[in-house]
Simulated assay, not measured.
Amino acid sequence: MELLKSLSAAEKKKIRKAVEGELERYRIYKTTALVRREVQSTPSYEPRYHGPTNKRSDQTARAAIFNVEEERKREGFCNLIDQAVGSLPEKERFLIEQRYIGKDSEYISDCKLYSFIFDPPISEPTYSKIRNRAIIKLALSLGIIDFNGEVSIT
């Protein structure tokens, strides 16, 4: 993969951190439920110091819009990650699923993964090569980098 060779170590590290952050967000979205906003219907007995009285507020509409948009955003993001990971070759997909998006991925170290979970076990340099290729492919799929190697993250 020419793109992998053309990137500097600092760029690779920045890309890896960005992809790991997106995979962490995916794992959080998958394991937590959306807390829906509800409208406060009981009056507040705190003093209200009025400003402009010509402004109207529709709490119910704002809460409903937030609930729908947040759910749609989460679902779209999870589908994007599922498609990106699903398009990876078998070993790369296995590595990403076990190390980054599995339920117990927070408790699995790289060493444990390449020594005990991979069947047959692989060496650390081979593991690093597989992981780096998978990270670059995911970065391309997620739009973190483009095909020219331009990093679009800050």
Rank of each mutant, 00 (worst) to 15 (best):
Glu124Ile: 04
Arg27Gln: 13
Ser6Asn: 14
Leu88Glu: 11
Ile81Trp: 05
Gln40Phe: 05
Ala18Asn: 00
Val68Glu: 15
Asn67Tyr: 03
Tyr107Ala: 14
Lys137Tyr: 03
Leu4Ala: 02
Ser105Thr: 01
Ser57Tyr: 06
Ser141Ala: 15
Lys137Gln: 11
Met1Phe: 05
Pro121Leu: 08
Asp146Thr: 13
Ser87Phe: 02
Phe77Trp: 10
Arg62Asp: 15
Glu92Thr: 00
Arg72Thr: 07
Val35Lys: 07
Arg131Lys: 15
Leu142Val: 06
Arg93Trp: 06
Thr154Met: 08
Glu75Trp: 03
Gly51Leu: 12
Lys13His: 12
Thr126Val: 11
Ser123Tyr: 02
Gly86Ser: 05
Gly76Ser: 10
Gln83Pro: 05
Ile28His: 12
Ser41Trp: 06
Val39Leu: 08
Ile130Phe: 10
Ser115Leu: 13
Thr60Cys: 00
Val35Arg: 04
Val85Asn: 09
Ser41Gly: 07
Arg131Gly: 00
Tyr107Asp: 14
Ala63Leu: 04
Ser123Ile: 01
Ile136Gly: 01
Tyr107Glu: 14
Asp58Val: 08
Arg56Tyr: 11
Ile65Trp: 01
Arg36Thr: 01
Thr126Phe: 06
Thr126Leu: 12
Phe118Asp: 03
Ser44Glu: 07
Ile65Arg: 12
Val85Ile: 15
Ile136Val: 15
Ile28Pro: 02
Ile117Phe: 09
Phe94Asn: 01
Glu70Pro: 09
Glu70Phe: 13
Pro52Asn: 15
Glu75Lys: 13
Ile117Gly: 04
Arg131Thr: 03
Arg131Val: 05
Tyr26Val: 08
Leu88Ala: 12
Phe66Met: 09
Glu24Cys: 04
Leu3Phe: 11
Gly102Asn: 03
Leu3His: 13
Gly143His: 03
Arg16Thr: 10
Arg37Thr: 01
Ile101Tyr: 05
Ala61Val: 08
Ala64His: 01
Thr31Phe: 11
Phe77Ile: 10
Ile65Ala: 14
Pro47Lys: 12
Ala84Ile: 06
Glu124Thr: 06
Gly102His: 02
Pro47Cys: 01
Leu3Asp: 09
Glu124Asp: 14
Thr126Ser: 12
Asp82Thr: 02
Glu2Pro: 07
Lys14Ser: 15
Tyr45Val: 01
Thr154Cys: 10
Thr53His: 09
Ser57Trp: 02
Thr53Lys: 15
Ser109Val: 00
His50Tyr: 13
Gln98Phe: 08
Lys30Glu: 09
Ile144Cys: 13
Asn67Ile: 10
Leu34Arg: 07
Asp104Leu: 15
Lys5Cys: 05
Glu106Thr: 07
Ser44Ile: 09
Val19Ser: 02
Glu106Gln: 06
Tyr114Lys: 05
Gly21Cys: 04
Asn79Val: 09
Pro125Glu: 01
Ser109Ala: 00
Asp119Met: 13
Asp110Ser: 08
Phe118Tyr: 12
Ser109His: 02
Glu20Gly: 00
Glu124Lys: 14
Tyr127Ile: 08
Lys73Asn: 02
